[in-house]
Design a protein around this nucleic acid. Structure first.
Lengths: 174, 174
DNA sequence: ACGGGCATGTAAGCGGTTACATGATTCG
DNA sequence: CGAATCATGTAACCGCTTACATGCCCGT
């Protein structure tokens, strides 16, 4: 359950409403930590009760801007340093690879080519984000440096998968 | 919901009991698709009702050996070819990286070093499995080739993550 | 005025984990 | 004979997703 820490982390950058957070999650975070709005709203209510965030301002349309509290900042720091990182890697693409042998060679080759294409394209997209980051298009706040680090991870991940599929296609051809 | 297909895939290799499947999931599949036994037993019952698997033999201690049916084989092939692959990549390590900027530089450096160590070690372990596979220590059945492909994915993934942490540590040092 | 996006919430359901529970068999 | 392992299951819970529901405000 890292959604609460995801929310706290985003709020550490500055106040935001549940709606804002929902958009940010389904924008830049969508590949590494998807989150739907019902979840975010209920988590915000819980965090508020625990004193880790507070309602900083009310806006139009019942908008509530939340800000992180000192306790919230302490909580996210403590999470990063003291809670062991969850290294779990649930990968349907790799699960599928265990069963490639049941497919006809022709079908397998087509499948591998299309998967390669997906990861290759996505990797290129992330590399273009890296370019933006290098040109400071995401600002110069310290968090921009972290964002750049995260983008690098996504780029490397997708490149690794593309490389793997390309390798697998060659193997399958023998 | 790929557990059912994971089960079907393993059963395509040969008959097995729920207990066998449970061990295999928490052995070689544990990094890419963890599964607990209650889940497996209930899924087997459901698959049996749907005619995708059948009880092939009864053993001691109430053991039930399941075998995949033709319908089951057709189902897993159809899944591999016709159901779009889920590319979702939920990564707590990368989620954390978005928030690195809230940490003190010293703490961050220590964190990055320990994470690098984990992925580097794990990558080496997978590379040693690659060696075993190359020496045919997992047999010569077609599925051994698929297993080797899956192991390659795990090796590349952990190498990519190790490389990323190493790169991040250098970035953080500036 | 009205359509589209802003904004928040509730309720139901689902996949997966954890805890609880039981008994048979094998091995030392 | 006792401990460890084999083997299957039920029940409760939890995080997350999907569907449903409501209303306000802004731009055209």
């Amino acid at each position: 359950m890292s959604l609460r820490h995801g929310i706290l982390g985003l709020l550490a950058e500055g106040p935001a409403s549940g709606y804002d957070l929902s958009r940010r999650f389904n924008d830049l975070l969508t590949h590494v930590w998807p989150a739907q709005h019902p979840n975010i709203y209920s988590e915000l209510t819980r965090l508020n009760k625990e004193g880790l965030v507070e309602v900083q301002a009310l806006g139009p349309r019942g908008r509530k801007d939340y800000a992180i509290t000192d306790a919230g900042l302490a909580e996210i720091r403590s999470w990063l340093l003291n809670v062991p990182t969850d290294h779990q890697w649930r990968s349907e693409p790799v699960l599928r690879s265990f069963f490639f042998w049941v497919l006809e060679p022709d079908d397998l080759e087509k499948y591998l080519a299309s998967e390669f294409h997906y990861y290759d394209e996505t990797a290129k997209r992330y590399r273009s984000y890296v370019g933006k980051a290098e040109r400071n298009e995401y600002g110069t706040h310290p968090r921009a440096k972290s964002l750049r680090t995260a983008i690098e991870a996504a780029a490397r991940y997708h490149e690794a998968m593309a490389g793997w599929y390309s390798w697998a296609a060659q193997q399958a051809a023998d």
